[in-house]
Structures are given as C-alpha cells and as structure tokens.
Computed example of a mutant assay.
Amino acid sequence: MRALPARRIATSALCATFLLGIAGPVAVAADHDATRDARATAAVLAPVPEADALLAQATSLGDVAGVLKPVTDLLTTALKADGGKLPAADATKLGDAVKEAIAKATASAPAAPQTPPAKTPAVPQTPAEPKAPTVPQTPAEPKKPEVNSPADPEIPAAPPAILPALPGAPALPAPGVAGRVAAPDLRADALKALQSSVDTLVQAAVAGDATALGAAAKKTVSGLVNFVAAVAVGGALPAPNLPGLPKPPTNVAAQSGSGG
C-alpha cells in the first residue's frame, strides 16, 4: 500500500519533466521569432539617413543627363551632316527636344539661396545741442547829479552765442525683401546661355554655314560645361574625391556664370 503513492509521485514528476522539456524550446523559439519580427519591422520603418539631400542630388544628376542627351544629339547630327547643313524639319525637331529638356531642368531647379544682408553699423545718436549760457544782467549804474556833464554811455547788451548747425544723421539703406538678399542663380544663368547658343546652332545648321556652325558648336559645348559646373558648385552635389584628381580652380563659380 505504501509503494503506490511513491510510484504515483514518480510518475507525476516524470510527466511534468517531459512536458517542460517539450514546452521550453517551443517558448524560447516563439520568443526568438517575436524578437526577430520586431527587429525586421524596425529596420523597415527606419528612415534612410539624409534621404532628402540624396534625393536632391539624384534629381540634379538626372537634370544634367536630361539636358546633355538632346544637346549632344543635336551637335552630333549637325557636325556629321554634309557641309554642316540640316533639313529645317530635322533641325527644328532636335532644337525643340533641347528646348523641352532645358525647360524641364529650369522648372525642377531648387529655389535660389538667399543670404542675409551685411550688417549696417549703428549710427551714433546726435547729442542734444547745448544751451547758450545766460548772460548776467549788468546792474544799472546810479544816476549822478547833473553837473553839466554828458550822460554816461549805455552798456551794450551781450550778443547771443551762435552755435554752428550740426549735420543730420545719414539715411539708413533700405533692407531687401524680408531682410534677405537673393544670391545669383548660376544654374538658371547657365541654362539661359545654353539655350541661346543652341538657337544659334540650329540657325547655322539650317543655313548650311559651316563657319557659323563651328563657332556655335564651340559655344554650345562651353554652355554644357558651364551648366554642369553650375550644378556641381551650387551645393546640390558632393565634392569629387577621386584619388589623383586635381583641385578645381577657385574661380569656377565665376566662370560658370559667364555663359560661355
């Protein structure tokens, strides 16, 4: 009779151990899966570092590519034509493609940066004009008895003090719009100059003037270089870091705004 309870206790302990052996790994695996799912969700929802700046750079590069392709197509077709002469329809089609690309690049350009105006030194306040000192009145001299003597001369009054007029304060310069001054837009200037050179190139190609076409082609290539440089120095693209690449000249910004 005593062996039965002990056997029951041993059986119960064995069953409990068996259940724990099965449920333990399952619980650990479930907890591991939940942690992995949470990490995956956090990785999906985490924003890309500096995503806005990278998108702006990608857009600028896309604008450069969108302008380079139609312009180089026009240059290649015109320079390969016999005598540099193109049919009017072909020249117009190529020129319209360039015009459309330039208009698209102009519309997608970021707003021109604005710089605060130079600080104007404070104008010192004009000191108040000092008052003239009060001249004390001369006491009247007592009358002398009339002894057939001429009358004493009257003492003239002291003349008022005259001070020179102080110059007025200079007028302050009027501030710009909302206190800021717009910086020059090199990108817009480069696109305008490029469009002008392309128009000249199309006219020379239609006329079949080889000399004028060569000059217009050089100006158009320079306009493309100026546009790429304006985008590069405008702050939208990172500085080149290719090993062995020479440093750009310090007057790149001025050259890019010259319009070729």
Rank of each mutant, 00 (worst) to 15 (best):
M1S: 11
P5R: 05
I9Y: 01
A13E: 02
A16N: 10
F18D: 04
I22W: 13
A27W: 08
A34E: 15
A42T: 11
A42P: 03
A42M: 14
A42H: 10
A43E: 08
V44C: 07
L45C: 13
A46F: 07
P47E: 06
A51I: 15
A53W: 00
L54D: 09
L55P: 04
Q57C: 06
S60T: 15
S60E: 11
G62Y: 15
D63K: 09
V64L: 15
A65L: 05
V67N: 03
L74Y: 06
T76M: 09
A78Y: 03
G83C: 03
G83W: 06
L86H: 02
I102R: 01
I102E: 02
K104L: 14
K104C: 07
P110N: 00
A111Q: 05
A112W: 08
P124V: 05
Q125T: 06
P130C: 11
K131F: 04
A132S: 09
V135E: 04
Q137W: 10
T138F: 06
E141M: 10
P142A: 10
K144H: 12
V147Y: 08
N148R: 03
P150T: 14
P150W: 11
D152H: 03
E154M: 13
E154D: 15
A157F: 08
A157Q: 15
P159E: 13
A161V: 11
P164V: 02
L166P: 00
L166C: 01
A169I: 09
P175W: 11
V177D: 12
P184N: 15
D185F: 03
D185Q: 11
A188I: 05
A193E: 02
S197Y: 05
V198G: 00
D199C: 07
A204R: 00
A204L: 11
A205K: 00
A207S: 08
A207M: 07
A210L: 05
A212V: 02
L213N: 00
A216K: 01
A216I: 01
K219V: 05
T220W: 00
T220M: 04
V225F: 05
V225R: 12
V228P: 02
A230N: 00
A232I: 09
L237K: 06
P238V: 13
P240Q: 09
N241I: 14
L242N: 10
P243G: 09
G244Y: 04
G244W: 10
K247T: 13
P249Y: 12
N251P: 03
Q255A: 15
Q255D: 13
S256R: 05
